[in-house]
Design a binder for these strands. Sequence first.
RNA 1: GGCGCUGUAGCUCAGUUGGUUAGAGCGUCGCCCUGUCACGGCGAAGGUCGUGGGUUCGAGCCCCAUCAGCGUCGCCA
Length: 590
Amino acid sequence: MDGARLMAVKVSCGALRASDDGTIAELRGWVNRRRDHGGLIFVDLRDHEGLTQIVFDPQHPSFREAEHLRHEDVLRVVGTVRKRPAGTENARLGTGDVEVGVSELEILNRSQVPPFPVNADEAVDENLRLEYRYLDLRRPRMQENIRVRHRIVKAMRDFFDERGFVEIETPMLIKSTPEGARDYIVPSRLYPGSFYALPQSPQMLKQILMIAGFGKYMQIARCMRDEDQRADRQPEFTQLDVEMSFATQDEVLETMESCMRYVWQKVLGIEVPAFPRLAHAEAIARYGVDKPDLRFGLELADVSQVFARSEFGVFRSAIDAGGAVVALRYPGGSALSRRDFDGLTETAKQFGAKGMVWASLASDGIKSSVAKYLREADLSAAANALGAQTGDALLLFADARKLAYAVAGKMRNVVGERCGLVDPQTYAFCWVTDFPYLEIDEQTGQPAPAHHPFSAPAPGDWELITSDPLQMRAQHYDLVLNGYELGSGSIRIHKAAQQREIFEMLGLRPGEIEDRFGFFLRALDYGAPPHGGMALGIDRIAMIACSEENLRDVIAFPKNQVARDVMMDAPSSVAPELLRELHVKSDSRG
RNA sequence: GGCGCUGUAGCUCAGUUGGUUAGAGCGUCGCCCUGUCACGGCGAAGGUCGUGGGUUCGAGCCCCAUCAGCGUCGCCA
C-alpha cells in the first residue's frame, strides 16, 4: 500500500486516458454520484477538470466505507488505472475509456445532504442558490460561466498589455460628487460627520492619470451605484475602464473594437465582423432606441406624412402637436387574434404608450382596430413604407416624437422576440455615435447632460452653448451588443475653462463647482493633454458570452433583486460601539 | 413607489367545477443486487399548501390583506 502511494501520480479527475492503463494514480475530488451494485460500487469522482469513475471491489477494506459515501463527500483515492471492460466504455466522458480500481480510500471530509442537486443544472429557486452559493458555484454551468468570465478578463488584460497600456488601481474610498446615480457612502471615523463615497466609476481619477502622463491606462475596475436592480444591473459591478491621451474618437473606437473582437476570438473562437456605426439620430429613426438589437431588421418608419390628412383624431392631434406616427411591422401578424393585439397594446402601454393602433394585412383585405377611421389607402401606404406584405400586421404609435419612437423601439424588441427573429448564436455589435450633448430632464424640464459632463462637445459645436445648447452634439459613443449597452465613452474636455463653462451651463453655482470639482479643474490647468476613453461592463459582456439572461449567473457572489447578499446576510446591523466611533446615529432598526 | 408573474414534500413540479386520507419524479433512509454510468428491485419517512383573515356544510382552489422571490416601469449624470 505504501509502495503504491509512493508510485502514485497525482492526477486530476479529467486527466486519465487509455494510455495510462496500468499506472497508479492518486485522485481527489467530490462524490458526484454513487452506483452501488451490492457486490461492486462505482463512484464518479468530480473536480473542476472532470469526472473519473472509481471502482470499489469487495475484496478491499475500503469497500465497507464506500457503502456509506454520499453526494459531495470529499475523497482522496489511490488505485490502479485500468481500461474498462470492452463494451462498458462511456463515450460521454473524456476519461470514459478507463476507471480506477481503488486500493486506498481517505475521506477528507463529509458533506451534509445538499439542499439542491449539485450534479445537475436543473433550475432551482434563486434565493436558495444564493444562500448556498458555494454549492451553486460547484455546478457545471456556473463553473463554466465563471471560467469564461476569467478568460474574458484575461484576454482584455493581454490585449491592452500588448498595446502598451498600464493597469492602475484607483481607490475605493473617494469623494462623493452627487451627480448621476446615488452614492454608496462610508462614514469617516476621523472626521465626524464626513463621508467617503464608493466610486460609481473611476472617471475623474483616470482623467487625472492622463494629466499625470501615463498615456494609456486600463483597469478592471469595481464600481458601485445605489440604484434599483434589473436583470442586467447589479449595485456592484465591474468595468473595463480605458483612457488614452492624444487619442481621437476613431482611435478609441478602433482600440475598443479590436479588443472586443480579440476577446470573442480568444474566448468563443468567433470572428466578429467590423462593427457598424450608427449616428444617434439614425439609431432612433431606424430602431427607436439608442441601443438597437441588430440581430434582426424590422426597421421603424415615420408614417406621419401618410396620415397627415387623416380624419383619425388620435393621429391628427399627435401630428398637429408636432408629434409623429411611428410604424412597426409584425411579420406574420395577420394571424394574430384581437386578443393578441389587445395584449400587445397592454405591453405598449407599459412602455408609456397612450395606445396602439394595429392593422392586419389579411389576404381578404386590411383589418384594423380603427378601420372605420382610417382609409385603406393610407394603411397600404404605411405598409409599403415598412415593406410589409400580405400576412403581416402593422403596429402604429402616435405621440410626441420622442415617446412614439421610444415605444415603437421597445415594441420592436418584443416583436423580434415573439417572432423568433433572434438567432442565439449571433453577436451583433454596433457603435452609436454623435449623441446629443444635452437632453431635457422630463421631471425638471431643464437641460441635463445626456451622459456625463466631462464629454467634449463635437468640434464646431462649442458656439451653440450660448445660442442653442440643445443642438450641441457630444464626442460621445456607446458600444451596443444584441440590444444591450455594453458601455460608453467620450473624448473629454481637457481645458479647465471649458469644463467650468459646461458646469455653469448645467446650473452649478461657482461655490458648488469649487466644492465638488475644484481639485479636478485645478488638475486640468496643469497641462492636461487632450484625451478620451471608454468603459465597458464586464458583467454584461460575460452574460452575453455565456448566453445567460441575468448578471447574477456570471458573478460569483451577486446581490439579489433587493440588493441583499443572502449568503452572508448583508447588509446587517453593526455593533453600537462601532456606530459611536463613526459618529453615526441610526433612526431605524435593521 | 407603480405594474405583472410566482409561492404545494429537501429539489423540480402536478393538483379538474370548491368535495373522502394533497400526488409524481428526483433526493433522503432501510433491505437486496458484481459492470453501472440518470444503474436496477422492494419498502419507508417526509406537507402549518408563504402568512393572517373572510365566504362556505366544506378552501391548496374563491375573496381581502400581508410577506417573500423574480421580472419590469420609475431610477441608473
